[in-house]
Amino acid sequence: MVEILLNGIFIGSLYALFGIGLALTLGLMRQINLAHGDLIVLSAYAALEATRLTGLHPLIVMPVVVVGMYFIGWALQRVLIERVMGRGETSPLLITFGLSMVLQSAMQLAFTADTASLDPGFLGPASVQIGPLTMGLLPIITFGVSVGVFALTAAVFNATNFGRSVRATADDARTATLMGIDTKSIFSTAMGLSIAVSAVAAIFFGMRGTFGPFVGGNWMLYAFETVILGGLGSIWGTFAGGLILGVSQALGGMIQPSFAPLLGHIVFLVVLLVRPRGLFAK
């Protein structure tokens, strides 16, 4: 029981990383990238290819993948989404829907429809003894990295010029432009970061479980649920939202493996009905 809960918390800390990327673009541009999940899957495949080519550990190739995904996100905003901004909420959805379709099919062509996973190497069996509990080293590192990323995000938002610009733009993009903030650059940086942060999660996810070309849709839903559960605009709320989703799914999986996503969805729906602004909204 305790193990299942802990497992839910570790997976949840990854959902939180999926979610923080989505929360950034949703809060800033009021738009959802329908290809968010597919881009996460793409980073997992990129890491897989990189480890195959170099023989290095997934965590070693991670910086390269993360930087690469940053530029893909940046380019997505600059080349495509920017062209339709100001035309309402529909156009970005339509564009990213097309992108999702292209990515899924392209990944199927390149990597087949079979599931894949990343080899965690020595981290796979490694474990530590904490009191009566034996815990895997990988889940602990996963959780630590997630907390670290959230702490960094919170620090950046509260204390840097970039963070202040993002918050100003999220509040009122037009006024922010008048104040001399280059909102276009803020938007593309945010989109880049959104994908880059999720790429970190993708690599940890790939070392623990499997992924395939078509799981992106589900991952996008989990990211969305995480954001709404926590409450849009609250960084640590998103973290908590991820943990709640992870634990709900773990509990659902106890009943029957295929119950895992269902219980997660139901918890989301209940929170939406009872507290539409999320559990930790400011």
Binding site: L26, R30, I32, Q256, S258, P261, H265, L272, L273, P276
Partner: peptide
């Protein structure tokens, strides 16, 4: 309770719930 892009994804979650309930 949702609107715009959030409503879009929210409706997808609802469809998934119905699918999974039928599945079980």
């Amino acid at each position: 309770r949702l609107s715009g892009a959030q409503l879009a994804i929210g409706s997808w979650v609802i469809a998934e719930i119905v699918r999974l309930v039928v599945y079980h």
